[in-house]
């Protein structure tokens, strides 16, 4: 019952929207109703799905790259206070820099458009992975550390058997944020890079459609992107639950 509430509310909004548009005869190039958007989605389905595929490809490639490099960087930073002192400010720098402002340079330096998008989305996604994993690595229980020392564990064993598992909940918390950021980064990058043609992503198509005042198609793109963002979040949530279900509070509260 309670689960249905947000859906019922959404449906109500859509009906209201459709009614306002119809009753006031709003032209579709100003504001299409939800039905018109649905029709645009159906009519342009192959085209839009191809665009979505391109966007998601970049998003996931960037996310995977951010996970691999982010965890590596966090492990390096955690290995010595001097390393953290020296390099963490630059991670923060990466985080606070709006990627839109870096895009023009990357576009000049890198010719491959996929690589451009990947770099920008990666920049958008990496910080939560670094900062959360680092926090996790530094929060390992001191007595467990002592225990590993007592039994002569080497650095590698301590990392694999203690530090990484212990920081998993923190890492997954970062991953959930980064999943959304990778998508946002990809979309922003696509818009700035101004990709067009058959290999362009969904954001590029959204822009094109809006230039042509095909607002229904543009909003269909928008709807697909939002849905993808939600799906990515749900995916990360599921992954998190699966990995933590045996031992972590966050995954246990549910069952």
């Amino acid at each position: 019952m309670m689960r249905a509430l947000p859906f019922a509310f959404g449906l109500l909004l859509l009906i209201l929207w459709e009614a306002v548009v119809r009753l006031n005869d709003v032209p579709p190039y100003i504001m299409p109703g939800p039905l018109a958007i649905l029709i645009a989605l159906k009519d342009n389905a192959p085209d839009l799905l191809a665009g979505l595929a391109v966007t998601l490809e970049v998003t996931f490639a960037a996310l995977i790259l951010a996970v691999v490099t982010g965890v590596l960087i966090a492990v390096l930073l955690a290995s010595s206070p001097a390393a953290e002192r020296t390099f963490f400010p630059y991670a923060v720098f990466l985080q606070v820099t709006p990627i839109v402002t870096v895009a023009p340079f990357i576009i000049i330096w890198v010719s491959n458009i996929f690589a451009v998008l990947l770099i920008l989305a990666w920049m958008a996604a990496i910080f939560p992975i670094i900062s959360n994993t680092l926090l996790g690595l530094k929060s390992v229980d001191g007595n467990l550390r002592a225990l590993f020392r007592l039994y002569g564990a080497n650095r590698w064993q301590t990392l694999i058997r203690l530090s990484l598992p212990a920081c998993l909940p923190y890492f997954l918390g970062g991953l959930r944020i980064s999943g959304g950021l990778a998508l946002i980064g990809t979309v922003v990058a696509e818009m700035v890079a101004g990709t067009s043609g058959t290999r362009s992503g969904l954001a590029g198509r959204l822009l094109e459609a809006s230039y042509r005042l095909e607002l229904a198609t543009a909003m269909a793109c928008f709807a697909l992107l939002s849905a993808s963002g939600l799906a990515i979040y749900a995916l990360m949530q599921m992954l998190s639950r699966r990995l933590l279900r045996h031992w972590h509070e966050s995954a246990r509260l549910e069952n």
Binding site: D141, N143, L144, L147, F148, Y151, R161, A166, L168, H248
Partner: peptide, 21 residues
């Protein structure tokens, strides 16, 4: 305090010193 690894079973916790060796 017990100082167990929450992500490992009772057996894996108990076997830790052996596995490290």
């Amino acid at each position: 305090s017990p100082t167990l690894m929450p992500w490992a079973t009772a057996l894996a916790n108990c076997a830790l010193p052996l596995r490290l060796a």
